[in-house]
Write a protein that binds this DNA or RNA. Structure first.
Lengths: 141, 141
DNA sequence: CTAATTGCAAACAGTTTGCCTCTTG
DNA sequence: CAAGAGGCAAACTGTTTGCAATTAG
């Protein structure tokens, strides 16, 4: 896994190649995403970016995230609750979700499934495994 | 897997045992859920139930679904898009989701994972596998 | 300079809540 | 008859959109 600076550079390259403008907002949003480590919601990214760009609008965050998704730079994931989370980790990996508080963490356990090409008439493109459990905090309670 | 009538009877028993009132609305909602087969959203259940109970309110549907979830009769699942789906299939099973149109189907492929008891400090309670793919319809397009 | 992008506010969709009325047990 | 459940409308939350002003290339 590359470090934040290297990934930011790649991001800039990627944008140039595709004719997308490199705006301070986009950079800040992507950087926030990289630094978050976890799987922030749009709201969380917004709060983070606002520290440096107090005038940014939440609409800009949503639009940037949508763009990034189209570029394949982030994955929109739905774990629980009613808001989408955004994941910059493009490596194959899975998640564990706390059924009590909703906390999500990456998991690197190796789950090599026999993925069929076809199932129920669907052509299979990929898969993800979500483990449910109780996080350390919620275990105590 | 039991048939609809048997499961409705169980449902009634369950409610009685817990002191919950058995109302026509709850019955209709649970029945709609059983008959749906797929993983309807609250809205879809509402539309279905409205055929027999035109005066039902969507709030009733949401409240009933929440109650059922607490009873362990349905599972609230988040696949994609911004609405929750409800799954009455309590057997261990997995899903395939069309990345294009959002269609969801049950999957009975055997994915026996080595589930660790503990991971990242979480105690693991279960897991679910979501396959992503293209449904027959979207494949053609 | 021009097309893309932003900010703002208004619009939306899904879901929840308050309150009063009705119904089940 | 009392506690619980339902109906309605208003409130809320997360997300999207239209439009005029701004900015990157």
């Amino acid at each position: 896994m590359l470090d934040v600076d290297a990934r930011l550079k790649r991001f800039i390259e990627r944008c140039k190649k595709l004719g997308l403008k490199i705006t301070p907002q986009r950079l800040a949003i992507y950087e926030a995403l990289l630094k978050a480590g976890n799987h922030p919601t749009a709201e969380e990214i917004y709060e983070e970016v606002k520290k440096k760009h107090p005038y940014i609008s939440i609409a800009t965050v949503y639009r940037a995230l949508e763009t990034f998704e189209e570029l394949g730079l982030v994955k929109k994931v739905f774990f629980s609750k009613n808001s989408a989370h955004y994941d910059v980790n493009t490596d194959e990996h899975h998640h564990i979700i706390c059924t009590r508080c909703g906390k999500v963490e990456d998991l690197n356990v190796d789950v090599s499934l026999n993925v069929p090409r076809e199932v129920n008439g669907f052509s299979v493109l990929g898969y993800s495994v979500n483990f449910q459990g109780l996080c350390p905090n919620c275990k105590s309670a």
